[in-house]
C-alpha cells in the first residue's frame, strides 16, 4: 500500500517540470501501477467478501439455530454433540403451543412431557394484533391532524409549541413511565387494553416526520384548493394523505412493530392472560418440563420462531419503508 504511494509520488513530481521524456515515463509508470492496482483490488475484493460473509454468518446463525432447534426432539437438542440439522423433523413443538398434547399421543414425545406449559399463544397473538391495529389507526389519525396543523395552518405560537414538543423527545421514556404507571392505575386502567393503547398514542417523532413531508407539498396546491372552495379536511384527505403515503406506511409499520416488540410497559400494566402481550407471555413462560424439571428449549424456540416470523415477513415486503423510517429515528418501534 505504502509502496504505491511512493511510486506515484515520485512520478508526480517530475510531471510538473513537463519534458516529453518525463511524460512518457509517467504514462508507463501509471500503466504498471494500475496493473498492480488491479491485483490488489481483486485481493481486497476477495478479502471484503470473506469478511462480509463471516459477519453475515454471525448475524444469521441465531436465526438458523432457532429454526432448526424448533424442529428437534428434546432428546436430540440435549445431545452431547449438537446436530446442525435435525435427524428427525418433528412438528409437535409448534402444535403444543396452541393445544395440549396428551402424553403418548405423539411418537417421540415422552410420557408426561408438557410442551409449553400454560402458554396460550393464540390468545397472545390476538391481544397483540388487537392492540397493534387499534393503536396504529388512532395514532395515525392524531398524527395526521397535528402534522397538518403544524405544516399548513397558521396560528400564533406555532413554532414555540412545536419546539416544546421536540424538546420532550430528549427526555428518556423511563421518566414518563413512573408517573404514567401511577396515572393509569388511578384511572383504573390496569389490565385493560386502554392502558396499552392510549398512553403512547402520540409520538412527537411521527408528528415531526409527517410535518416535514407535508411541508414539501407546494403551498400553491393548498391555495388552489381553497380558491375552489375545498374544505381543509377534504384537501387533507384528497391531496396531502395520498402524496405522503410512503411516510404514512413507514409510520404504520414502525408502530405495528413497536406493539409487537414492546415489553416494559405491557409487563407493568397488563399481567393477566386476557390482556397479556406476546413478548410478556413469551418471557414469562418458563417452558420448564414438569417431568424432568428441565427447560424445554425446542418448544421455546418454536415459540420464538412464531414471534419472529411475522416481523421478518413484514420486513421482506416493506423493506424500503422500514429502512427509511429507521434511518431517521434511531429508535426501535
Amino acid at each position: 500500500m505504502d509502496e504505491e504511494v511512493k511510486i506515484t509520488e515520485t512520478t508526480e513530481t517530475p510531471a510538473g517540470t513537463g519534458s516529453a521524456a518525463d511524460k512518457v515515463m509517467k504514462a508507463k509508470d501509471i500503466r504498471s501501477v494500475s496493473k498492480k492496482q488491479v491485483v490488489t483490488k481483486i485481493l481486497v475484493q476477495i478479502g471484503l467478501y470473506v469478511f462480509l460473509t463471516a459477519v453475515a454468518i454471525a448475524v444469521l446463525f441465531p436465526f438458523y439455530w432457532m429454526l432448526i432447534s424448533s424442529f428437534k426432539t428434546i432428546d436430540e437438542y440435549n445431545a452431547t454433540v449438537p446436530t446442525l440439522w435435525p435427524k428427525q423433523f418433528v412438528w409437535y413443538n409448534y402444535r403444543g403451543l396452541f393445544v395440549d398434547i396428551l402424553p403418548g399421543e405423539v411418537p417421540g414425545l415422552e410420557e408426561g412431557m408438557e410442551v409449553a406449559g400454560e402458554l396460550n399463544l393464540g390468545r397472545l397473538f390476538f391481544n397483540t394484533c388487537l392492540v397493534g391495529i387499534v393503536s396504529t389507526i388512532l395514532s395515525l389519525i392524531v398524527t395526521v391532524l397535528s402534522a397538518y396543523a403544524f405544516a399548513r395552518l397558521e396560528f400564533k405560537g406555532k413554532n414555540l409549541l412545536f419546539g416544546a414538543l421536540l424538546a420532550t423527545m430528549m427526555i428518556p421514556g423511563e421518566l414518563f413511565t413512573i408517573t404514567n404507571y401511577v396515572t393509569v392505575s388511578d384511572f383504573g386502567w390496569l389490565n385493560t387494553f386502554t392502558a396499552l393503547i392510549v398512553p403512547f398514542l402520540v409520538s412527537v417523532f411521527y408528528i415531526y416526520l409527517l410535518r416535514q413531508n407535508f411541508l414539501q407539498i407546494p403551498n400553491e396546491l393548498y391555495l388552489a384548493a381553497k380558491v375552489d372552495g375545498t374544505s381543509d379536511l377534504k384537501y387533507l384527505w384528497k391531496v396531502m394523505i395520498p402524496l405522503s403515503a410512503p411516510t404514512l406506511i413507514s409510520i404504520t409499520i414502525l408502530k405495528m412493530m413497536g406493539a409487537w416488540n414492546s415489553y416494559i410497559w405491557p409487563r407493568l400494566v397488563a399481567n393477566d392472560t386476557m390482556h397479556m402481550l406476546i413478548t410478556v407471555g413469551l418471557r414469562g413462560t418458563g417452558f420448564v418440563d414438569a417431568a424432568t424439571n428441565m427447560v424445554n428449549y425446542p418448544a421455546q424456540m418454536a415459540a420464538v420462531v412464531l414471534v419472529t416470523l411475522p416481523l421478518l415477513l413484514v420486513f421482506m415486503f416493506f423493506r424500503k419503508y422500514i429502512m427509511r423510517g429507521v434511518s431517521r429515528s434511531g429508535i426501535k418501534g
Binding site: P62, W65, M66, V304, L311
Partner: peptide, 27 residues
C-alpha cells in the same frame, strides 16, 4: 448482504435474547 445485516433490527429483542441464552446455555 445489506438485507442480511439489517435482519437483527426487525426482530423482537426479548425473543432473540432467548435464542442467545439457548446457544450459550449448558444443559
Amino acid at each position: 448482504f445489506q438485507t442480511i445485516f439489517f435482519l437483527p433490527y426487525v426482530t423482537n429483542g426479548i425473543a432473540i435474547g432467548m435464542v442467545f441464552m439457548a446457544m450459550f446455555q449448558m444443559i
